[in-house]
Nucleic acid binder design. Structure first.
Lengths: 144, 144
DNA sequence: TTTATATTTAGACTAATTCTAATATTCGCC
DNA sequence: GGCGAATATTAGAATTAGTCTAAATATAAA
């Protein structure tokens, strides 16, 4: 029986291209962070990512992990999800979608359906009931 | 010309009734907090409320303000709005509605339209453009 | 290269929130 | 009303996610 190939990491040139497309200089640290972050679609906190980066053996400071995630979010590479004052998640999938948050388990999962709430209500995760729908539309001032 | 009556505060019995309806014991501190909070529809942080309570001359500890807002939110008297890790607002209007958050000014305002995003896009606050739509549906495990 | 600009770092710091455990108040019942 | 149990309040300490500082490195530009 053949051994199973490990899931391949995002190929080198994709990360480089992503960064270029979004106007982000690629440094050693940013590459390490991006490799871990974009290996798969995930919802991850800065601290979790810091730990995962450590486990690769590469040294990247905590400040850099925080700064880099903020930068990636500004540049549209990741989405920031503010669950409460102690839980900020980064979503490596930046395509337009929304989330279920289970207040009992602390898990965050994607909403596949469209935005209309009656769809959402029919699609709740197994064994859960709806608590509250939080919709915040973030706007900024038009530059004149 | 007649002088304009100041807006009246929430009458005493309304607060008492609200609390009873939502299963919250009314104490001196909770009454002071509720009087300030429900005087009008507003988006307010715990610290702002703490200051406002101080200005009434009543002494209520900071811990109590925080605990009480958490309790009120649990009991459905107010809505918690998590903007980012340093900004938690409490909305004294607990009826079903959503928000615009201006990232430049830090102001939070109600969305009057329904949930569908194309409506939202037509109703942005004067002089702003859309940044991002954050929708989180909070669910909890069904009690078996 | 040489100089300028951008990035990273350790560790100190901040600010929002929670915790602790002692005290006070209120509730439910006689 | 009075009494014990349950709840609520408090000051201040503790926690924790995240930011700041300013010195050291690395990258880019000339």
């Amino acid at each position: 029986m053949e051994s199973i190939e490990p899931l391949s990491f995002s190929p080198t040139r994709d990360i480089a291209q992503m960064m270029a497309t979004h106007g982000v200089n690629l440094t050693r640290q940013r590459r390490v962070i991006a490799d871990v972050l974009f290996e798969r679609n995930q919802h991850i906190t800065a601290d979790q990512l810091f730990d995962m980066v450590k486990q690769t053996g590469s040294r990247v400071s905590k400040a850099t992990v925080y700064n880099t995630l903020r930068l990636f979010a500004q540049k549209g590479l990741v989405r920031e999800i503010f669950i409460d004052s102690t839980r900020t998640f980064y979503d490596s999938n930046n395509s337009h979608h929304h989330h279920f948050y289970n207040v009992d388990t602390g898990y965050l999962v994607d909403i596949k359906a469209r935005l209309a709430p009656h769809f959402v209500e029919q699609d709740l995760p197994e064994g859960t009931s709806m608590d509250v729908v939080d919709l915040v539309v973030r706007v900024r001032n038009k530059r004149p």
